[in-house]
Nucleic acid binder design. Structure first.
Lengths: 121, 121
DNA sequence: TCCTCATTTCGACATATAACGAATTATAAC
DNA sequence: GTTATAATTCGTTATATGTCGAAATGAGGA
C-alpha cells in the first residue's frame, strides 16, 4: 500500500505529470526541466525527489549536472505499466504538446546555454 | 489532463484505495463501507463523491440506500485499466485482506442490522 | 586554494485536503 | 402529515502539500 500511495501521490500533481511525460524524450537535467516548466529550481528539485521516491524516475549525476530519466521498465512491471498508462492518458493534451516542443528546442538549440545539454563529464 | 488529475488525486488516499478494492465484491451501500472503514458517514460520502467525480465508481439509489460499484469497464479503457492496475498493486496488502474479510461478513451476516444489506426498495 | 554554478535542503507562507459533527435532504414507514 | 433513517452538504479544524527565496552542498575550473 505504501508503494502504491507513493506512486499515486506522485502522480497527483500536474507539474509532475508534465515532468514524467517530458522524460519520454530521454534524459533531461534539472535546469532543462526548469526551463520548460518555468518554476523555481528548488521547486522542480522537490518534484523530482517525489517522483524518485516513487521509483518512477532514475537519476545519474554527471559533473555538476543531474540527469533524470524514466524508470527502467525491467525494474518493476507495476511502475512501467503505470507510466504507460499516464502517457496514454495525456494524449492530445495541449500543455503536454507544448512541452514536447519546448523540450525539443531545449535539447537541440542550447549548445553553451545556461545548461549545456549534452556535456558529458 | 483534467480527467487524469481527477483520477490520480482520487487514488492518492488510502481510504479511497480501500473503497475501490472493496468494491471488487460487487455493489456496496454507504453504510456498509462506513462499517468496514470505521470512518464517519460524512467522510465516507465525501470520499465516494471524489471517486465518482473521477468516474472510477458508479452509483444507484434504491430506496433510502445508495449503492456504489466499480465503473463499467466498457465506459472507459483508461479508467478500467487504471482500476486493474490498482487491484494488482494492492495484492498481498494486509489491510486490504482484512477489508475483504470484513466485507464478506458485512454482506452476509447482517440481515436486519443497521444496514439491511440486500433490501431492494 | 578559491570561485562558479547546478542542484538540493531549509524555512516560511498560502492553499488544498481529510476528518468530524451538525444541519439538510430525500425516502420510506407509520 | 409526522417520524425515522440513509446519505449528503456545510462549517470548522488540523494536517499535508506546492511554491518560493535563501542558505547549504558538491563538483569543476581558475
Amino acid at each position: 500500500m505504501r508503494d502504491l500511495l507513493a506512486i499515486t501521490k506522485a502522480l497527483a500533481d500536474s507539474n509532475r505529470i508534465r515532468i514524467l511525460t517530458m522524460l519520454r524524450a530521454g534524459e533531461l537535467c534539472v535546469c532543462q526541466i526548469v526551463e520548460v516548466l518555468g518554476l523555481a529550481p528548488s521547486t522542480v528539485s522537490t518534484h523530482l525527489s517525489i517522483l524518485y521516491g516513487a521509483k518512477l524516475v532514475e537519476s545519474s549525476k554527471r559533473g555538476r549536472w543531474v540527469y533524470y530519466r524514466l524508470a527502467d521498465p525491467h525494474a518493476s512491471a507495476l511502475v512501467s505499466d503505470c507510466i504507460e498508462w499516464v502517457i496514454r492518458s495525456v494524449e492530445n493534451d495541449e500543455t503536454i504538446e507544448e512541452d514536447r516542443e519546448k523540450v525539443a528546442r531545449v535539447i537541440s538549440v542550447c549548445p553553451e546555454e545556461l545548461c549545456r545539454t549534452s556535456n558529458q563529464s
